[in-house]
């Protein structure tokens, strides 16, 4: 083996480490707890859930589609949802956005209704998912979460965490508005 080749062989551990270091560096700036949804590109699962205000009225997947919309997962036990809620109301005051609210495993129907009465109701339809059935099918792992659904009922994006002005401007808003162009 000539000496240059030999040196190259002995350099491989260093080169391998440098490659690894690059990944570690980028890893520092991302949140490892953030998960991609497995449902991107798939239709919203079938469901049959009661209305939050009216237990006798049930909604099915037929309410999904027809136009781009958001499905917002929330609960009164979730402190972040409180902040998100006021943002959603602000957003709706100026823009016309179709949001379905999915109340996720809340303490009681009354608690959720009180919350909406006190803080305002940004949702066109309110689903009451007491046992978390639809949430499980959607792969929800915490509240709040927001799904962006296109007019064919296909999930195009999921955001985990609260919606706020920045998230809306940079992430969720662009996806939502792009669905109108198609």
């Amino acid at each position: 083996m000539n000496s240059k080749l030999r040196l190259l062989v002995f350099l491989t551990p260093m080169l391998l480490f440098i490659g690894l270091g690059g990944f570690l560096l980028t890893g520092l700036f991302s949140d490892p707890t953030e998960l991609d949804s497995a449902l991107i590109g798939k239709p919203v699962p079938n469901f049959e859930l009661p209305d939050l205000y009216n237990p006798d009225r049930t909604h099915t997947q037929s309410i999904i589609g027809g136009k781009p919309m958001l499905i917002n997962v929330w609960a009164t036990w979730c402190p972040t949802c409180y902040q998100e809620h006021s943002f959603l109301n602000e957003l709706l005051a100026t823009k016309d956005i179709y949001i379905i609210g999915l109340n996720y495993k809340d303490d009681s129907r009354a608690a959720a209704m009180n919350w909406l009465q006190d803080l305002g109701d940004p949702y066109q339809i309110n689903l009451f998912d007491f046992s978390g059935l639809l949430a499980l099918d959607l792969g929800v792992y915490g509240a709040p979460e927001t799904f962006v659904v296109d007019s064919k009922g296909i999930i195009r994006y999921r955001h985990v965490g609260d919606l706020n002005a920045r998230v809306w401007r940079e992430k969720v808003g662009p996806v939502y508005y792009s669905l109108f162009d198609q």
């Binding site: 998960l35 949804s37 497995a38 449902l39 499980l136 959607l138 792969g139 792992y141």
Partner: peptide, 8 residues
């Protein structure tokens, strides 16, 4: 489970 939460 994978269909809902991914390979994770």
């Amino acid at each position: 489970m994978k269909a809902r939460y991914g390979d994770f």
